[in-house]
Structures are given as C-alpha cells and as structure tokens.
Design a protein around this nucleic acid. Structure first.
Length: 463
RNA sequence: GGCGGCUUAGCCAAGCGGUAAGGCCGAGGUCUGCAAAACCUCUAUGCGGCGGUUCAAAUCCGCCAGCCGCCUCCA
C-alpha cells in the first residue's frame, strides 16, 4: 500500500501522513477576508486545498474539510465606509462573490464554512480561559495574549522569541503591551461610532487570529490533523493560532502544517498598489476555468507561481489537448471499473508524494498519448475513462469544455448545426469557396468545424 | 536590519546523490480539396555564478548575485 507523504512546515520535512482517526482526516484551511472580489491568489489557495481534499478521498480517507470566512476585519469596515453600506452587507456581498468564483473553478464545498460573526461567544469563552490561566491580560478595554507565557512561541516560524524580537525593531508597538510581540485577542473601540460587538470587556472586535482557534476548537476539538493556508500566513497568523490554542488546551493544535506558495504577476508581487491585481472574475474572462486550474496544478503547490498571459495560454492549449483525446466520450457511458490499471497506480504514487500535481498531469498526458495512438476501440474507451476519472480527481471538468453553455438555448444549437450542414453540402459539391466562407464565419464566432473521414464533420465551441 | 524561500530549454515546469518528466511555442514530415485534430521526427553534454565533498552533484556544503515572501490583521 502506498503511503501518503506531506511536507510539514512545522518540522520542515516530508513526513508520512497518518491521521489521528485512521478513517477520518480533519483539515482546516484559511479562507478569504471578504472585503473585495477574490483574486487569483485566492484561486490558487482554493484549488490547492480542493485538490488535496479530493486526492485524499481518492486515496481512501474520509475527509472533513473546514474553510472559514473572515467577516470581521478593518478592511471590511474601511470598504463599508468607502461605499457607504453596512459592514455586514459588504461581507455578504463578497462572500457571495467568492462562492460564485468557487463554483466557477469547480472547487467543492467544504463541509463547514464558519464565519467569525457566528462564533463570538466561543471567542469570549476562549479569551476568558486564557485570562484565567494567565496566558492573556487585559489593559483598558483590550485583551492581549502574552507570548512569553507560551514556551513554544515561534516554533512554526522556527525562531525563538528573542530572535523574533530582533527583527521586530522597526515596527511600532503599542506601548501598553507587556511584550512587543504580544498580540490582541480583543480590541476595544476607540470611538463610540465604530462597528463593534458587545463583550465582557466592553464594545470592541476580536483579534484576527482568534477566530481560527475558536472555530477549530468548536468544530473539531483540541487537535486537528492538517492546517493549511498561504505561506504569507505562517507568521504571525498561524504562529499565534498555535500559541492561543495550545495555551488553552495543552495539546497539539495541528499535527501537520501545509502552506501554499504565492502567485506573482509578471514576476512581481500582486498588489493593488502595483496595479497588477487580477481577480478570478477577470482571469476567467480571458480563459477557461479548466485552464486556470491547469495553470495552478502544473506547478507544485509550495512553489511560487508566476502568472503571465503566455503561461495561461499554454495552459489553455494543454487542456485542449486533453479534451480532444476525450472526443466521443459521453458522461453517460463513463465506467469506473479500472481501478487497478498502471496509470491509476502511477497517479496515486506521484500524488502521494506531497501532492505532486505536475507529475500527475504528466500521467494524464501519457494517457492522452495512449488514447490517440490506440487502434482497439475497447482499449481506447478504457483509457478515456481512466483519463476522465483521474482528471476529475484533479478537479477538471473536461467534458464540459465542448458543450454550449446551458444558458444558450437549443435554437442556437440548431442554427449552428444547420450552417455546418450547409457547409458540408457545398463541400460535397466541391464548392470549396462557399464551404470555406461558412467555416470562416463560424470561426469568427469561435465555432470550429472539423472534417472527419467519410464526409462526416463535427463542430465545437473554441475555448 | 532579522528570518525563510526561489533561480532548470524561447515560455511554464518536474527533479529529493546514479547521468535532465511533462506541457506550450517553434521546425520538418504523414494525413487532408484546404484547414483543424492526430501521428512521426527534431528542439538543454546543460540545471544563476564560483569553489568544495563524492567513484558519481541540478540534487549535499560554502561563498556571491538576482528575485520573492514574512516581520504592517495579504491566500
């Protein structure tokens, strides 16, 4: 039996993965702060965790996946002021937008999608317990976590408190805090008009790190198997989650820490200030969901990934090749009795090695080669089914690519069909001039006609 | 300033000590009325630079350069 290995950022090593409960993996990944449309970095993160969860299920585990929505945040409040609507509404609008993007990217729904606003009482309990055991202290209407109370502070980042402090020199720190690195669990309001919640410490808002700790505890209990997120969250966010949670429970918070790499745009950091900020919606105007996913999975999830026009178009062409080889396959005759073939085994083996999706894609292309050179129809169908099966595990939806979007009605299909038929008549009578004209016209509308043997033809929407 | 990461063909990218996967693009050919798709062939004596360890290095070590990230509630 193949073993699953994952790179655990806590130990900076690849480790054999074994869940606490051999039959059920608990995984929590950090979701977006909903103050704007999600960008391609969120897409990478979502696709990465979605693919990891899909693969683990294929591998044989039952998986419970939680991805939170941060709906309390200064950025949300700023946005609310900017567009003059209530912060609650801002977060609802962009949560909806995020969900649209996830559907477009064929990212499966997590089992739980907790929101900070729904877990305030759990956060209050959490803070109270930390105050009680001396890990947190109150100053005025703020509550801070005391990093020196937690002896393992810095273990995820791999630095001691002293080392962390050295690099902290240039950051202005709240002078009220006992230690520079102490962070807020609760922030009291400074002005009465601020967006705030009632709490045992007066009106205010929770610190960012707290929600993940509190929601994990309430959903899974003391220890989870995998905690994931972007590698920009390692410090301080995840470090602080560990400090809070482990101070409270005395138990390991997360056994494996996995982080995905960042996306760059044309070799630069993606940021609003750089003017190279690309939302998922913008990206999907110029390419397909399958292609965006291909682009993401074509590099290893921990590596930095550079978004360029050229790379996206290469991804689209790669997807097209996979789709072409599935010609003639209908989802109805999709069979699944091929679990033991060499391609499935190789796929399992490469993905078991810290989710090496680029190698997994190369297995898909090997199948494409086999399909395209296979003479025996039965073997060919078998390979096509395998390709379809494996591509589904990576979250691709290859059969949808050729189909007219369901919102386009049948009469348009009929029109295209009739035009293509007309062209074929011209062609049969060797009137190539008119035949080519119709083909050109269709081409301009992104409809591609291809001639097959025996005077047959087919057409498809070009991606 | 502190810490971590990355640098492989025109482009994207795997590689985890045993002699460079895969995709895209490009060139030539087969098929075709022409296309498209497909197929066949070709495309890094080379892995940022310089040293070192080893029978053997893209892979390990050191130094240098460039880029990226975190240390500012950014996935």
């Amino acid at each position: 039996m193949t073993q699953l290995t994952v790179f655990n950022n806590l130990t900076r090593k690849k480790e054999t993965f074994s869940p606490q409960d051999p039959n059920n993996v608990s995984i929590y990944t950090c979701g977006p702060t909903v103050y704007d449309h999600s960008h391609i970095g969120h897409a990478r993160s979502a696709v990465t965790w979605d693919t990891i969860v899909r693969f683990m299920k294929f591998f044989g585990y039952k998986v419970t996946w939680t991805r939170n929505i941060t709906d309390i945040d200064d950025k949300i409040i700023n946005k609310a002021k900017e567009i003059n609507i209530h912060p609650d509404k801002v977060s609802r609008i962009y949560t909806y937008s995020f969900h649209e993007d996830m559907l477009a990217l064929n990212v499966e729904w997590p089992d739980f999608e907790p929101r900070a606003t729904q877990h305030l009482s759990q956060m209050y309990d959490f803070i109270n317990s930390l105050i009680k055991n001396g890990a947190a202290y109150r100053i005025d209407n703020d509550v801070y976590f005391s990093v020196t109370s937690f002896k393992n502070y810095g273990k995820l980042k791999g630095q001691s408190i002293n080392e962390l402090e050295k690099g902290f020199g240039r950051i202005e720190s709240n002078p009220k805090k006992k230690h520079k690195l102490d962070f807020a669990l609760w922030k009291g309001i400074k002005e009465p008009s601020e967006y705030a919640f009632d709490s045992p410490w007066g009106k205010g808002r929770p610190g960012w790190h707290l929600e993940c700790s509190a929601m994990n505890l309430s959903i899974y209990g003391e220890t989870i198997d995998i905690h994931g997120g972007g590698d920009d969250l390692v410090f301080p966010h995840h470090e602080n989650e560990i400090a809070q949670s482990e101070s409270l429970t005395g138990k390991t918070f997360a056994r494996y820490w996995l982080h995905n790499g960042m996306i760059m745009v044309d070799g630069k950091k993606m940021a609003k200030s750089e003017g190279n900020f690309i939302t998922i919606k913008q990206a999907l105007r110029n390419t397909t969901s399958n292609a965006l996913r291909f682009f993401i999975l074509n590099s290893h999830y921990r590596m930095p990934l550079n978004f360029t026009e050229e790379a996206i178009s290469a991804a689209q062409n790669g997807i097209n090749r996979l789709v072409e080889s599935l010609d003639g396959v209908e989802s109805e005759n999709f069979e699944t009795n091929f679990s033991e073939n060499e391609f499935v085994n190789e796929f399992r083996a490469v993905m078991s090695d810290d989710f090496n999706s680029p190698k997994a894609l190369s297995v898909l292309f090997k199948l494409t080669d086999k399909i395209n050179t296979e003479k025996d129809q039965k073997n060919k169908t078998q390979s096509q089914n395998t390709l379809l099966y494996l591509s589904n595990i990576l979250g691709f939806n290859l059969l949808s690519s050729n189909k007219i979007d369901s919102c386009i009605n049948n009469s348009l299909s009929k029109l295209i069909e009739n035009l293509v038929h007309l062209r074929n008549d011209f062609k049969t009578h060797k009137d190539y001039k008119n035949a080519d004209k119709i083909r050109d016209i269709l081409n301009e509308s992104k409809i591609e006609v291809k001639d097959l043997a025996e005077n047959k033809y087919k057409w498809q929407i070009k991606p």
